[in-house]
Design a protein around this nucleic acid. Structure first.
Lengths: 253, 253
DNA sequence: TGCTTTATGTCGCAT
DNA sequence: ATGCGACGTAAAGCA
């Protein structure tokens, strides 16, 4: 069983850990000083305070204070968790539709973040699918592109394990990020982190901060493998010079 | 703000952290593999599984799995948390009366334990009382015993900070543990840990494992200051050669 | 998806 | 303490 946990992480580190935890389907416990706002069937706002945020892989979100059996704010199962850093601060947002409801937690300090992989049934289907996608690519690397050679899976990096690492026909390092379903801009951000980490590791100067010119061919390439991408995600991919390969976890039957 | 967190602690380490956390009035988040049994208004038993146990200073206990907004088992606020190691395994029990209800969580593995001090109002009263007790003793050390000299408060040790450290009339080191109300055997265990830690630190051979003869005068003394003790606690105190001083946090008015 | 009933409901407020 | 009603009730069973 795997538990990752970070003590007093930076907001950006917390973001990375959170995104990875969402990806793995982990049960997350996050402690920190935050404000909470909810809008939906009713509306509420909570001022700054130390609280415990629990994020479940089934979409449930719970904000607990030091008192009471009930969470002070929550989101029911079936919601979608999103994490981002806005103005340097970690923001976790959980949304659902029918009815439309949004829970937003803005952290001023993140004191402790733990993510635990839970032995559960529901998850196996999902993970199975991404597993399938990886297996498919390892068996037929040309599905990514002609001449691609996988070298390693779950290759460790300072930004966490990358799904597939390999080289292209020119011998250029390639980071491949796998997603089992249609993805938004978040996935591009995740891929970018791995690419950046690998560039640093290889001692390659990164292009300017938050700017990505397609003038210099990047010494590390990024490829996002997913059935499809949203428009915004496609823009980001283009901005950073990454490629998208449209591929389903399972071959059409 | 203070967060203590341990990754993959031993059952005994987890116990220490838990007891200290209860003492401090912390909000506790505990990840691990466990079985859960509840008896009260209804009854239930859960087999082994990875779960998140949340323990609040107001007595609420929540057992969460990876699914659902509701805890799979719980105990309402006003309950009392107790931690112990039984057969080498951490056991957390939360009980309340009216109606009589007991929640028992038995861990086979503790993966992650975090305890956070929460800025709250209700807590200040409690801590204030223990603060009072300490102040009283520092102002009138003879209340502990004639010739007692306090040397340090919150003195750090490998078993955590001890409430008051000092020396007696003979110059023998004394560890004083303060409790604001009647205590059970748990408090004696906590005092014993501090004494043992200090003995180790001072390079003093401990008496035999789990055996305490009153033949050799102990090189480090333990004194429990509390309004009163239970019978079982008194037994344990006697076994280990510790003293009890009956003292209220506030002088009778 | 929508409706009905149950719950270790919880929680607040009244007596 | 007990009784009563409200809740962002949640969750399960069923049409």
């Amino acid at each position: 069983m795997t538990v990752t946990s970070v003590h007093d992480p930076s907001h950006r580190e917390a973001l990375w850990e959170l995104e990875d935890a969402f990806e793995r389907g982990d049960l997350v416990s996050l402690f920190g000083r935050c404000t909470v706002s909810y809008e939906g069937r009713a509306a509420s706002d909570l001022g700054a305070g130390d609280r415990l945020l629990v994020l479940k892989p089934d979409g449930a979100a719970l904000v607990h204070t030091d008192e009471g059996r009930q969470p002070v704010n929550w989101q029911p199962p079936g919601s979608e968790h999103h994490a981002a850093v806005r103005e340097g601060r970690l923001r976790v947002r959980s949304t659902r539709s029918n009815p439309d409801e949004t829970l937003t937690v803005r952290f001023s300090d993140v004191h402790q973040l733990s993510a635990m992989a839970v032995t559960g049934g529901r998850d196996l289907d999902l993970h199975g699918s991404e597993e399938d996608l990886r297996t498919r690519i390892l068996e037929r690397p040309d599905l990514v592109e002609a001449g691609f050679e996988p070298r390693e899976t779950e290759r460790p990096s300072s930004a966490g394990p990358m799904d597939v690492f390999g080289v292209d026909a020119d011998g250029t390092p390639v980071v491949v990020e796998l997603k089992r379903r249609r993805v938004g801009p978040d996935a591009v951000g995740q891929l970018a982190r791995y690419v950046r980490a690998l560039r640093e590791e290889l001692g390659i100067e990164d292009t300017e901060e938050d700017e990505y010119s397609d003038r210099d061919a990047p010494a590390v390439r990024g490829v996002l493998v997913a059935p499809s991408v949203t428009d915004r995600a496609a823009e980001r991919l283009a901005d950073r010079g990454f490629d998208h390969v449209a591929l389903d976890p399972t071959p059409e039957e």
